[in-house]
Amino acid sequence: MNVGRQQRALDAHHDDPGDRPVMRARFEHNGSPRYMLYTMKRLGLDHEHGFHLDVQLVSDELEGGMETVEARLQDGEADLIDIDYISTARERAEGANIVAFHPYGRTVGGLVAPEDTAIEDLADLSGHRIGVVRRLDKNWILVRAACRQYHGFDPDETATPVEAGSKVGLTEMLHDGEVDAVLQFWPIVPEITERGPYEEVFPVSDIVQRLAETDNRVPVSTFLTSDSFLDAHTDTARRFAAAYGDVVDRLIAEDALWDEIGEKLMSYDDPEIVAAVREGWRAMVVRGWNNETIDGMEQLFEHLRSVAGADALGVDRIPEGTFRPVDPI
């Protein structure tokens, strides 16, 4: 999807902030939070809750080993991003001034392969070339952990992971036949499978729940800001949390909002793809969290560390202060 076209759709709702506090949101142009952010702006929920959300879409390329959104936050050019909490722990352990203050959802992906693939489940990965955005990507870490736990092998050793560097590059790698399958992020999976000839072999969200050993939804990605922003603008973060709760309720209840999202933000204005993404988003999103939720996230991390090892995660612990939940205001 053309980044400029999506940004123009957002800019149509970037009215004057007035004297409201501003929160600079920087999100990937092909990530699922853009659906929620566009709708929040479209409905004016940021202003309704007393703040101004400035949304700019950026590339999903890597900068110095970090995703672009992480680099923007750490460089002081953003106040709000989303990444998975394993990456948050890794960057915070290395001294990054970042903190998770609200959940987003189970933002994992799925293994996608040609329809005639010989890969039917996790047990079949050995001997195949598997495309990943990067080897420290959460999808690959989760797959490695599940293979080690349930099938007794590590696909990082028995298969060949091939790094694409971006989600766009990952899809191109699949189309060009450079790999046997890819671990693509969930919002992009329907665009690939609905247009064929590809299928989703398995969703990584099943792995999350299986490893977490709970029926409760465990958020993998959270909204982040800097410690300094949260300290100075706690009320702004709380206002965002309230607006987020409202927009999630609307996106769960109102199919019509998704018709506009499909038109403005998706690569293919195809009703079947829009419907698949809509239902996937509703199954993925986490509206709020509490101490029990965070305990579950920490338990999942410990399970991943014990199975895949600290080297696979890139960090051996969740540093103190990584999670600082705020109450909606």
Rank of each mutant, 00 (worst) to 15 (best):
P114A: 11
P114Q: 11
P114K: 11
P114S: 05
E115Q: 10
D116I: 02
T117N: 04
I119S: 00
D124I: 01
D124A: 11
L125S: 02
S126C: 09
H128W: 04
H128A: 11
H128S: 11
R129H: 11
G131Q: 06
G131R: 12
V132W: 13
V132L: 07
V132E: 02
V133F: 00
L136K: 08
L136E: 04
K138W: 09
N139F: 01
W140C: 03
I141L: 14
I141R: 13
I141V: 15
L142W: 08
R144K: 15
A145S: 04
A145D: 01
A145E: 00
A146I: 10
C147T: 08
Y150F: 14
H151D: 12
G152V: 07
F153A: 07
F153K: 08
D154E: 06
D154L: 11
P155W: 15
P155H: 12
D156Y: 07
T160N: 02
E163R: 02
G165D: 03
G165W: 06
G165Y: 07
K167I: 14
K167L: 08
K167T: 12
V168S: 08
G169Y: 01
G169M: 04
T171F: 03
E172V: 07
M173C: 04
M173K: 06
L174H: 02
L174F: 04
L174Q: 01
D176M: 06
D176H: 10
D176F: 01
D176W: 00
E178D: 15
V179T: 05
Q184I: 13
W186H: 14
W186I: 02
W186R: 03
V189A: 15
T193N: 10
E194W: 03
G196M: 09
G196C: 12
P197Q: 14
Y198P: 14
Y198L: 07
E199M: 06
E199H: 08
E199Y: 01
E199G: 05
E200Y: 06
F202H: 11
V204R: 00
S205R: 14
D206W: 09
I207K: 03
V208L: 00
Q209F: 01
R210H: 09
L211F: 14
